[in-house]
Design a protein around this nucleic acid. Structure first.
Lengths: 201, 201
DNA sequence: TATTTACGTTACGACATCGTAACATATTCT
DNA sequence: AGAATATGTTACGATGTCGTAACGTAAATA
C-alpha cells in the first residue's frame, strides 16, 4: 500500500499536477488530533477530511484504508523526550520527567492526547502493535535503561524489579493524564522521581 | 428507562410468563465480558445476545438501548477490594494491594479486564462518568483516605502530594495490567508499597 | 495549446449495527 | 381451557461509515 510521498520514484517531473505535501501534512495532523479525541472506531475518514480541509477521495488517493492512515500516523509519532546522557540516574530521570511534562502538559501537543488509547493495545487486533510502539515502547525502554544503569552504578538497590519500577513511572504519567487529567502541580513531574528515589516516609 | 427487575412493582403475580432472572444475569455477564474484550464501540448487542444465549429482543425487552445496558453493567461492578481498617497505613495498603492483585491477576474476574477502558472516561461523552465511577473513583478514594490517615499519624511525610501519590499507586496497577500485562511477580503487588514507602535507593 | 495529473463535490454500493415488528411457541396464573 | 406474558427466530427500516465512481475544475509540464 502506498502512503504519502509515493511520487518520489519519478526521476523527472512528468506532466500533471504535482501532489501538494502540505495536503499530506494536513491529513496526518487531522488524523492525529481526531484519533486522540475520539479513538479509532469513532474517528471517521469524513471527519479527518473535513478537519484537514480536503475531500475524502484525496485521503484515499494517499492511503488505501483508514487502517493504513492510522498506522502511518502512529509511525510518525515523536518519541521525545530524549533521555539525558549525563549525570546521575536521578538527575537524568528528573530532567526526563520534566521535559516529558513540558511536552505533554505545557505544550499540549496533539500526539500526547493519545495516552487515552493505551487500552487499544491489547484490544485492537489490527493496530495493537502500532499503538504499543507509538505509545509505550520507546519511552519505556529509555526509562528502563537509565534504571539499569543506576543499579549498576550502585545508585539504586541492586535487587530493584526493573519492570515494576518502570511501570511505576510510566503508570504514574498515565494516571496523571487520564485520571487526574494532568492537573499536576507546577513542578513538572520532578516529584515523581523524588518520591520514588526517597520514598514517602 | 427500565432495567432488569422492572417487574418488581407488581403487587401480586399476574397471569403471564414471569421473566427469568437468570436471563438478566446472563445478559449482564455477557456484556461485562464483551465490554472488556472489545470496548464499547466494537461490542455489539448481537454478540451480547449470542454470548448470553438469548435473542436480541430479549435484551431490548429489559434495556432500552445499548448505552443503558452498559451503564447498568458498570453500576453493578464490584468496588472490591475493601481497605483494611486496622494497622498502620503501610500494612493496610500492603494488604489492599495484595487483595487487589488476587482479584485481578489470580482470579481473572471479567470485570477486571475493564482497565483497558480507562481511556474511555475522557473520550466517551455518553458513558464517561459511568466508566470513571466503575473503574476509578471508589478504589482511588480508598487509597487517598489511607494516605491521608498516614500523614496525620506521622507515618508519611506531612507534605506528601496526595493526588500524585494516589496516582502513583493507581497508575502502577494500570501499567502492570495494560503495559506489562500483569506478568507481575508473585509478590502480589506488595512491592509497590515497599518501593513507595522506602524508595529505590 | 494540449496533455496529464491532482483535487473537491456529489452520489453511490456495500456492509454493519441499532432497535423493532411480526409471529409461533413456551410458560405462567386465573 | 383461556388469558396474559416471555421468549427466540426471522426479517426489516433507519442510519452511519468505508471506500469508490463520475465529473468538472485547477495546476503543472511538454
Amino acid at each position: 500500500m502506498t502512503g504519502a510521498g509515493s511520487s518520489e520514484g519519478r526521476l523527472s517531473h512528468a506532466a500533471g499536477r504535482p501532489r501538494d505535501p502540505a495536503v499530506d501534512r494536513a491529513i496526518l495532523s487531522a488524523t492525529l488530533e481526531l484519533l486522540g479525541e475520539h479513538g479509532y472506531e469513532r474517528m471517521t475518514i469524513e471527519a479527518v477530511a473535513r478537519r484537514a480541509g480536503v475531500g475524502k477521495p484525496t485521503v484515499y488517493r494517499r492511503w488505501s484504508s483508514k487502517r493504513d492512515l492510522v498506522i502511518d500516523v502512529l509511525n510518525h509519532i515523536s518519541d521525545l523526550p530524549e533521555m539525558p546522557a549525563e549525570g546521575t540516574a536521578r538527575e537524568r530521570l528528573t530532567d526526563f520527567m520534566e521535559e516529558w511534562w513540558r511536552l505533554i502538559v505545557k505544550a499540549g501537543h496533539p500526539s500526547y492526547r493519545l495516552q487515552s488509547l493505551i487500552g487499544e493495545m491489547g484490544r485492537n487486533p489490527e493496530l495493537g502493535k502500532s499503538f504499543r510502539k507509538a505509545l509505550v515502547d520507546n519511552r519505556r525502554k529509555k526509562i528502563m535503561t537509565v534504571l539499569r544503569e543506576g543499579m549498576e552504578s550502585g545508585e539504586l538497590r541492586p535487587d530493584l524489579d526493573i519492570i515494576l519500577a518502570t511501570d511505576m513511572i510510566f503508570g504514574t504519567v498515565i494516571a496523571q493524564r487520564l485520571v487526574s487529567e494532568a492537573r499536576a502541580g507546577t513542578d513538572g513531574w520532578r516529584r515523581i522521581v523524588e518520591y520514588l528515589f526517597d520514598g514517602w516516609t
